[in-house]
Amino acid sequence: MKKRAVLGVALAAVLALSGCQGGQSGQTEENKPAETTAAVDKTAAGTTNAGREAANDPQEEKELNILVMPKLVGIPWFNASDVGAERAGGELGVNVIYAGPTQADAAEQVKMIEDYMNKGLDAICIAPNDPAAIKPVLNSARDAGILVMDWDTPADKEDVDYSVNSVDPVEYGQAIWDCLVEAMGTDSGQYAVITGGLEAAGLNMWIDAGLEYAKVKYPNLELVTERIPSDEQQQVAYQRALELVKTYPDLKGIIGVSTPAPLGAAQAIQEKGLQNQVAVVGGTLPNDASVYLKDGSMDFCIVEANPETLGYATAYVAAYALQGKEIATGLEIPGVGPITVQEDGKTIILGPPLIVDGKNVDDYDF
């Protein structure tokens, strides 16, 4: 946390020298940052390259407007990301707008992006529900001189300037399958995968990586059906898990991919009293998983990162890049630490996955 203060001051100073309004935390009432939840139409920012260059002119005052869009609002993971993104905006003196659809709807994401672009944006950071569906609007944004990033879930690499990832997707997928085998107590048997949405690129990357890994390391695992969508809803995942244990009485494990999925699966296992028969693992938040981890309804929670940290890092990288600063391996982000940038120069990795179980869940408060 001390590092956050030091680097936050340094970056805020850079933003101030670039003609941006606001400043670092601890500023006077006269110089406090703009409210991060305000609408972007209060800014006079342009959306062209010329507009971005003006932001770097010490003679021009221009507030940076950064849209951070989740796949949907209202679920714990993205609620926590919202806190981090807006906190970064306040500390850096930039206007962070955190907005997204109430359902995992790519068409609604496109509409919202277009509306915000018309009001004036400097950066768009999106967790896409469908990379193909948002491609045209992201290309339009880049043509207009807007910095485009993805976070949490990747868009097509050619459509973004940077991609902020909590973990390496291959490493994460492999960790999930390792945890499944450990929880099952065997490397053979039937299992199923409940995901968020079938078009979610990030979820598919993790699943694909895990399935390829299992072919080599765990060839006796049997996937009983294709990945099952839950529409990013715990109740739907719960229903799908009930259907699975009824249809496949020899089922030994369920993997939940997307934060509501393992919670719904664990809820079903708890209700049926199958803690010693069906293992449940997946990626969700320790606070939400705690009750299930402690009673054995869920065996492992494989956490990408603290979602608040992910939201903070996303807004931080956007602000840093808008100032023309180099995004490279070793860049220290407050509260995150040094990042890794892969060879493509776009893909940013924040750290390794965190494995949480019933014994250590109380060590984490998110």
Rank of each mutant, 00 (worst) to 15 (best):
residue 283 G to I: 07
residue 302 I to C: 10
residue 265 A to C: 15
residue 190 Q to L: 02
residue 140 S to H: 14
residue 316 Y to N: 03
residue 136 P to D: 09
residue 125 C to R: 14
residue 312 Y to S: 11
residue 249 P to S: 03
residue 129 N to I: 15
residue 159 D to F: 06
residue 246 K to D: 15
residue 198 L to S: 12
residue 81 S to W: 02
residue 19 G to T: 10
residue 147 L to S: 01
residue 329 T to K: 04
residue 272 K to D: 01
residue 188 S to T: 11
residue 58 P to K: 09
residue 334 P to F: 06
residue 15 L to N: 13
residue 364 Y to F: 05
residue 278 V to R: 14
residue 180 L to D: 07
residue 182 E to P: 04
residue 252 K to A: 15
residue 203 L to K: 00
residue 304 E to S: 15
residue 220 N to I: 02
residue 29 E to C: 04
residue 215 K to F: 11
residue 303 V to R: 00
residue 263 L to T: 11
residue 120 G to C: 05
residue 152 D to F: 14
residue 94 V to M: 04
residue 166 S to E: 14
residue 337 G to K: 10
residue 88 A to L: 12
residue 256 G to W: 05
residue 62 K to V: 08
residue 358 G to F: 03
residue 341 V to A: 04
residue 84 G to T: 03
residue 181 V to W: 04
residue 7 L to Q: 11
residue 298 M to N: 00
residue 207 I to K: 11
residue 1 M to C: 10
residue 80 A to M: 03
residue 58 P to E: 10
residue 26 G to N: 09
residue 304 E to C: 05
residue 255 I to H: 00
residue 295 D to S: 09
residue 81 S to Q: 12
residue 215 K to S: 07
residue 141 A to Q: 00
residue 123 A to N: 04
residue 26 G to A: 00
residue 275 Q to C: 00
residue 164 V to H: 14
residue 307 P to S: 08
residue 359 K to G: 04
residue 54 A to C: 07
residue 84 G to K: 01
residue 256 G to Q: 11
residue 45 A to W: 07
residue 343 E to F: 04
residue 110 V to M: 15
residue 210 G to H: 10
residue 329 T to Y: 06
residue 84 G to H: 04
residue 287 N to T: 06
residue 328 A to L: 13
residue 271 E to V: 01
residue 291 V to K: 03
residue 226 E to Q: 14
residue 66 I to W: 08
residue 170 V to T: 10
residue 84 G to E: 03
residue 209 A to R: 12
residue 211 L to W: 07
residue 311 G to F: 00
residue 208 D to Y: 08
residue 342 Q to L: 06
residue 70 P to V: 13
residue 111 K to F: 15
residue 258 S to N: 09
residue 30 E to L: 08
residue 88 A to M: 08
residue 126 I to G: 03
residue 39 A to P: 07
residue 292 Y to Q: 12
residue 262 P to C: 07
residue 225 T to G: 05
residue 304 E to Y: 13
